[in-house]
Design a protein around this nucleic acid. Structure first.
Ligand code: MN
Ligand code: MN
Ligand code: ZN
Ligand code: ZN
Lengths: 126, 126
DNA sequence: TTTTAACTTGCGAATCACTTGCAAATTACG
DNA sequence: CGTAATTTGCAAGTGATTCGCAAGTTAAAA
């Protein structure tokens, strides 16, 4: 683990919500080149230390977000007003996914889920 | 409905799986400019005639895929070998989504789900 | 410890999927 | 028709991400 990779992994570990490559590039803009950040993310995802998903929001456009990988994966809610994520807890879709997989004879190796809307804090402010 | 918009909507109606903007640009490359295709897609999605989701695959990169919108939305499986979609049927996540929404006090207005892996046809070929 | 091979990084250019400005072409409508 | 509103093509612009390559580091061999 090089210094750049360690720093990227630490930043994602400390963040309590998914972090985009762009956010990491901003955070480390005086330390590492964006190409290095992107390469570190690929490296870490290849080593199964990170999971990622792509999400589009009006404010930030289409970006890939990264979270620590653990055995028990979780899903996220994205607020369309404040653009923060809320943890939806551990995945509860395993049974349904297994059911769909069986029905169609598919070998499902992964799934992506996220919800969007307005978070409680933003709803209050309306 | 202009001619371009009609043609785009027809193409998506006839396709029995999600269609990417790029596929439509290729299909209509002698008829319409890509900008027109993209604008037609935005128009149709704004008029609630289309739904879309973003998916990344190794072969085609990150693209937005479009399907006809109906009251009952459905979810899709994407084969990482042949890059075709399989219909997973109508959404079965409503209860779980309502549950997550209630637990966190979120106003969930939409969710995205898709699964990836290998389809039966491709599995046979191995 | 020097030698050498392997890997990592920064920088600049390139890609790729869109998006936008603007003038020309269509369409809507009084 | 005659004019206003909308749509389209073309070319240029964006923004996220990727790539080539030479320089910097690290690791392994001798
Ligand atoms: Mn899950
Ligand atoms: Mn659903
Ligand atoms: Zn919010
Ligand atoms: Zn397949």
């Amino acid at each position: 683990m090089t210094k750049a990779r360690t720093h990227v992994l630490e930043a994602i570990t400390q963040a309590k919500e998914p972090v985009s490559a762009r956010q990491l590039c901003e955070k480390f803009q005086s330390d590492y080149d964006p190409a290095t950040i992107y390469r570190a993310l690929h490296y870490l995802e290849g080593k199964d230390r990170l999971d990622s998903f792509i999400l589009h929001c009006s404010e930030h456009g289409t970006e890939r977000y990264y979270v620590l990988r653990s055995n028990e994966h979780r899903h996220w809610f994205h607020c369309e007003r404040c653009h923060r994520f809320t943890d939806l807890g551990l995945c509860r879709f395993d049974d349904l996914v297994a059911q769909m997989s069986a029905e169609k004879g598919l070998a499902i190796t992964s799934h992506t889920f996220y919800a969007t809307g307005i978070c409680p804090e933003c709803r209050q402010k309306i």
